[in-house]
Design a protein around this nucleic acid. Structure first.
Lengths: 298, 298
DNA sequence: ACTTAAATATAACCTCTTGTTATTGACCAT
DNA sequence: ATGGTCAATAACAAGAGGTTATATTTAAGT
């Protein structure tokens, strides 16, 4: 009996080609190497051709090249099918959104609650990593919408401002600058505790400081705003964090610096020209609607 | 758990639409009605939409229309994939050819033997029905190549002559015309035993008689040449059959009629612009090659 | 050439998927 | 009413498609 070809086999085959090995493909697809091997054999059996020359480095045969091209097309069409038909359904299923750290902490909790209240049939999955990784995930189709802490500059994306955020300079409670008249240049020789490269917060801080003529000496890089506050409290140096990161009584003092403000938008980003699932559509609506009602951003 | 969509579901869905009912689709696909029902439910579950309004006459919802369009596209791409990749393999698998009755009886046995000898890895499947049905099957992609008893006139097909055949007039052994000088008009008032409408043999006979100014009175229609001979032997009337249908000593006499000859080609037909599988390619080669060596057609 | 590390092939097994049959319930037409 | 047709559902069987464990191949380094 001629076992018929399966979508899964095509997916697996493309993954093999992409990763250059069965094992790697398996890792990518979350299955074991023998499973991958099976799919490949099934395909070769089906067509009666060797698709790939096996070896340390495996090399596609002409039939393999041919299959790859057509398989890509089929899978692409299938993706379109899924997306288009899904648009006829109400918000439902699983929605995966991404958020960079700051919006993830400050904005997403409220958005998520609001969204889930309105759309209980959608399982909401929020991936929180830094801005650059979030953007990359969006372009990789790992997430459908992203909320990040700066304008997006990639032409393949569209961004909508859904809120604003202010950053403040924080220092340890015993810092000598407290109470004094402080200008940007007073910070020039001090050690800074900043977020990592790739963080929108980091970029905003560096841009604003550069505009004021200051190049910060980075003593420490930390992957979360709360961690930055902690380090500052422990005396590691000067930090710049979102105002709202600071609790009612925090272990650090804020510092007003003459002529230095850190303002930045929260931006909802989606891929240009990609049709959104109804759930994503609904999420966007919540984001833009919520802003008027529930947010008191300046 | 989001069960993924399967090719089979798409096929089933399209078949439902095409046939207008689950049961009919099941019959078409060779599966039972509950199986079809399952597929439909799986799709609706997956997308969270009702695709078809159930009722005596089932009616596609907008989402169903949408799915149908995209599904057709996906399946079409898949068919192309199959065909293209198959071309990289040697002749193998299953080859389904069609033949109308006369070539099916006179030509195919030898061709089939010859083909199987050369390509033991191909299971050969010969569908023998009359010419019109054979042509229809070719256009429906039920068969890859066809051998019929007349030129093909459909512009979507290409035909190659691979042999010729002569028909003769047969009468019962006690017919009064035997031994006499017979002209076409002597046949005018006699009852004819002919093949059914849709048979190439039938068409050839009618055309030739018409050219000679005779409109046959059809007393009986039979679905095979052997049956025609049988009926003629039993005294049903005049028949016209391929010479080679008649055995060494047959129960009928042949009649030479002045100015009346029935010559017609055997034609190998394929669909224009459809890439053939390697097996079909090989079959074509056997057909055109065999003709020179093994056939003594006039 | 031998050894070794990394990768693929094979085997035995387990578990859902996707069919099956049997049955019930709904709907129409006589 | 009632008989025929069709879809839904339940219970079950076979096979696809995955798993772990183990053998075998391959290419590179000494």
């Amino acid at each position: 009996m001629a076992a018929r070809i399966s979508i899964q086999s095509l997916r697996v085959f493309l993954s093999i080609l992409e990763h250059g090995s069965l094992s790697a493909a398996g890792r990518d697809l979350g299955m074991t190497q023998p499973a991958v091997s099976n799919h490949l054999h099934a395909l070769e059996e089906h067509f009666g051709v060797t698709l790939l020359m096996r070896g340390r480095r495996l090399q596609p045969m002409p039939a393999g090249e041919c299959l790859a091209g057509h398989a890509r097309r089929v899978l692409e069409d299938l993706a379109i099918l899924e997306a288009e038909v899904a648009r006829h359904a109400g918000p439902r299923g699983r929605l995966v959104v991404g958020a960079s750290s700051t919006p993830g902490e400050l904005l997403m909790p409220r958005l998520a609650v609001e969204f889930s209240a309105h759309y209980p049939d959608v399982a909401l999955d929020v991936h929180i990593v830094d801005t650059e990784e979030t953007i990359a995930a969006l372009l990789h189709h790992d997430i459908e919408v992203a909320v990040v802490g700066r304008e997006v500059d990639d032409p393949r994306l569209v961004g909508t401002v859904i809120g604003r955020d202010e950053l403040v300079v924080v220092v340890a409670t015993d810092d000598p600058l407290i109470g004094a008249e402080v200008g940007p240049l007073d910070l020039a020789d001090r050690p800074f505790v900043l977020r990592e490269e790739g963080s929108a917060t980091r970029r905003v801080v560096e841009d604003a400081l550069a505009a004021a003529g200051v190049t910060p000496r980075v003593a420490m890089e930390l992957g979360s705003n709360a961690a930055v506050v902690g380090a500052v409290a422990a005396g590691a140096g000067i930090g710049v964090v979102p105002v709202r990161t600071l609790g009612a009584r925090s272990a650090v003092s804020t510092l007003k610096v003459q002529g230095l403000t850190f303002l930045r938008p929260f931006v909802l980003a989606t891929e240009r020209n990609r049709p959104l699932s109804p759930a994503a559509e609904a999420f966007v609506e919540i984001c833009t609607g919520t802003i008027r009602t529930a947010t008191e951003c300046l």
